[in-house]
């Protein structure tokens, strides 16, 4: 469950990214965050993963007040989240397999059980036969699927994706969105930021619209 109440985020340079944000995404729910570029979508997602802290208000994730977490507790919060980043953050110095392995290494998984999970995750996104490939040799859509595999390999309860379809053509984008819907159907809470209005019309899910840092009604 993700719950924002009266959240405000102001940067040191005086720019207010978010103002008086309040909403709740129940466990197992899927929601889209949309809005023009610069509306505060990314900031909102970054607050959930404690990459940034709210200036005021409270952000509750799985019953924990994220803004008040000690820095030592933040890694354990993040292990319950699956994050797909806008800039992907793929490590190009290692194979597809090792990229997906990273969250399990961080969590201290037994390596044999971990290999099985990595293959299962790659299977789900359709990259099973590319596990030894270098990420640089993958197409844009495949790279995005690699990011999704990395985000779900540790079976998080919440999946958060920032513009997962931004640089893909419409066919690939629909594939990716179908994947997220599949995760939602097996009980994962899914929150996706996107400005892709073409996709929005097809999806029967809750939509949170941001406008200059405020939630539109």
């Amino acid at each position: 469950m993700i719950s924002f109440s009266q959240v405000c985020k102001r940067y040191p340079n005086g720019f207010t990214a978010l103002q008086d944000i309040g909403f709740t995404v129940e466990a197992g729910e899927m929601a889209l965050v949309t809005g023009h570029s610069g509306a505060g979508k990314s900031t909102l997602l970054r607050l959930i993963a404690a990459i940034e802290r709210p200036t005021s208000g409270s952000v509750i994730v799985n019953g924990q007040n994220v803004g008040a977490l000690k820095s030592g507790a933040i890694p354990y919060l993040r292990r319950n989240l699956g994050l797909v980043f806008q800039d992907q953050k793929i490590l190009f110095d290692r194979s597809v397999f090792d990229n997906v392995m990273l969250p399990l290494q961080v969590g201290g998984f037994d390596s044999r059980a971990a290999s099985g999970r990595v293959r299962a995750a790659l299977d789900k996104v359709g990259l099973r036969d590319r596990e030894k490939a270098r990420p640089i040799t993958l197409s844009g859509g495949e790279q995005q699927r690699l990011c999704i595999a990395r985000a779900i390999v540790h079976r998080p309860s919440i999946l958060i994706a920032d513009e997962p379809t931004s640089n893909l053509d419409i066919g690939y984008a629909k594939d990716i969105m179908a994947m997220f819907r599949a995760f939602h159907q097996v009980g994962v809470t899914v929150l996706i930021a996107t400005h892709d209005t073409e996709l929005l019309s097809e999806m029967a899910v809750r939509i949170l619209t941001l406008d200059h840092g405020r939630l539109a009604a």
């Binding site: 990459i51 354990y76 292990r79 969590g107 990395r150």
Partner: peptide
Amino acid sequence: EIEVSKLIGATA
């Protein structure tokens, strides 16, 4: 690598 590790929940 350090940045990604931090983002996916690596402890210090």
